[in-house]
Design a protein around this nucleic acid. Structure first.
Lengths: 333, 333
DNA sequence: CAACATTTGGCAATCGCTTGTCATTCAACA
DNA sequence: TGTTGAATGACAAGCGATTGCCAAATGTTG
């Protein structure tokens, strides 16, 4: 199974005719060693196929070169972009990337953090379900960066759905809609609150009425009840918490023979893969989620190195925009 | 930032009035220590909130409790099921789950394996791009389990697209098709070869002619050329290497005003999220990919513990089946 | 050529935990 | 009561790296 034995710095040292500490210094503290010696050591290391053991290194130095990303639901296509961006950035930075599912549970999230804490340098928490207080408390002990959630005093990278939400309202208003219904996701969810706030404010600014229904499970299956509720409320425009829910809504409306956008317009959030495949193609708010993932990892790494010189944690905000497709149209009268 | 200092076995030992080694044994070698003492030590550990340091443990014992999964392209929805299954199983088994992207490159794959080798107990290689010889060679040094690829002598979990492929042919034959065209993925790809083999054999058995075109990039963007090529070949049935390609084909056909399934039937593989959203909904081969992910991790863990008693590596084969939707219909005459 | 400043390299401790070895204790047996 | 054997717990040596401290070597200057 595993090889007879791995090459250690001692092997390199012996082979190069120097002390182990010299090898170590040649490898990561270049100026402490003679360039010629360094060269030689490096050559020997190369020849012997030496690879430092990350565990031994981490045990001694505390630097794990590893980060973990916690996601409420790996299944949800919404996170793919974020995961991808984070993985990419981590890989570029030479960091090992641990991915863990928290199954939508705050407890689980906390447990994972504690379980992994010894193995990683920090955490990227995507759409964290934990309470603000808990998060803040954990942040005192661990390196945390939030994605798509803001907590004062903590670093975060979010896609601001405010802009997209305003664009939804402008779009709907220009199509003659006088009201809209927001089919909400979990009320606890930070983006849900953020979206609803922006929608309501923008609606008011445009003289439209806005109502919130729900919460609905933010998945395709949730679309059934959500659509029925929206229809029951006599809405001409349904803004779903996310694309998954919107797609479910679309399905239910098709089942009930309700023409979209003839009778009802439907809008989603996230622009997930599939949003432009469904019929009718979904009008939705797209955001640079991959970018958010990258930014979060960036914040995490920066935080570690500059910890002292950078007292104010950064809050990266990325802007979103509306992608108009086929599921929205002039208000029925 | 990081806490003042973590609780170690020494803290526990002191507090419990025993030696550190006793604490260690109480924790993982129960029979070597008096039940009463053990009880006491455990209680103290609990009270002090002691958590073993995985790195220190791993450094000493070699048991990392961590596995890595290497995927050619995190972006590809095809892998989501497999990733999810693997992550779940790993989490259930108390294993830390590392996810890495290999960017479709065999070299990258190999590098990642070597880079991570010291940090993990084994690897799950999804749709590995490496040559058989390379894979075998690496398998002598590292714990590998393949997913959706088989190499003799190595453990693997695959979704057998043979069954699904035969069902495609039966389905098409029953609809009166006399020929089919396989729009191939990368010729190097193991599933591509497997699919084509099964399609050709089944076609022959049904007196149909089968042709292979390509390779095409197995992504939506590849659909353009693939569709044109298929049309050029005068096909009545296009079997695309995967759903992504099939969706691209569908798009191109729509663009060109070719009715589906009126003039041409289209079939995909994988049944990814979105396959039933597109218009027309895609007929495709679905397989238990999540199951394959689970199985792979299972094989990996089993392999580690029973290494000696289980000389013959297991090859798990899971069956696939055709999901008939709207993109296939009677052959145009 | 002597004396001093500056590099450069080696020794040994340490990170937190596991584990082989050995001394001690205690029970049971003759 | 003396002897043997099984249990039990303490000691100490690593696992593979980093790093503070000091000695040796080198170069520079008067």
């Amino acid at each position: 199974m595993s090889s007879p034995r791995r090459t250690t710095i001692y092997d390199v040292a012996r082979e190069a005719g120097v002390a182990a500490s010299t090898v170590s210094r040649a490898l990561n503290n270049p100026r402490r060693v003679n360039p010629a010696t360094r060269e030689h050591v490096l050559a020997v290391a190369e020849r012997l196929g030496y690879r430092p053991d990350p565990l031994a290194t981490a045990l001694q130095s505390g630097h794990k070169a590893t980060i973990a990303m916690l996601v409420p639901d790996i299944t949800n296509p919404h996170f793919f972009g974020t995961i991808r961006g984070a993985e990419k950035r981590a890989s570029e930075a030479g960091l090992t990337f641990i991915l863990a599912n928290t199954e939508e549970s705050a407890d689980n999230e906390r447990n994972q953090i504690e379980r992994l804490s010894r193995s990683v340098d920090g955490f990227v928490l995507a759409a964290s379900r934990m309470q603000e207080a808990t998060t803040r408390e954990l942040a005192r002990e661990y390196n945390l960066v939030l994605v798509n959630r803001q907590v004062e005093g903590l670093p975060s990278a979010v896609v601001d759905n405010g802009a997209g939400s305003r664009q939804i309202v402008e779009h709907l208003a220009s199509l003659g809609h006088r009201s809209l219904v927001y089919l909400s996701g979990p009320h606890r969810s930070w983006p849900a609150a953020q979206r609803w706030r922006a929608l309501r404010a923008a609606a008011e600014a445009h003289g439209m009425t806005a109502r919130r229904l729900g919460p609905f499970p933010p998945r395709v299956e949730g679309g059934g009840v959500a659509a029925d509720a929206g229809l029951g409320a006599g809405a001409t425009a349904l803004v779903a918490h996310n694309d998954l829910l919107a797609i479910g809504v679309l399905r239910r409306l098709a089942e009930r023979g309700v023409p979209v956008p003839g009778q009802v317009s439907v809008v989603g959030y996230d622009d997930i893969f599939g949003a432009d495949l469904c019929a009718p193609a979904l009008t939705t708010v797209a955001g640079p989620h991959e970018e958010a993932g990258r930014a979060a990892v960036e914040l995490l790494t920066r935080k570690g190195s500059l910890s002292r010189s950078q007292p104010a944690p950064q809050q990266v905000v990325l802007s979103s925009h509306l992608v108009i497709r086929r599921s929205t149209g002039p208000a029925a009268r």
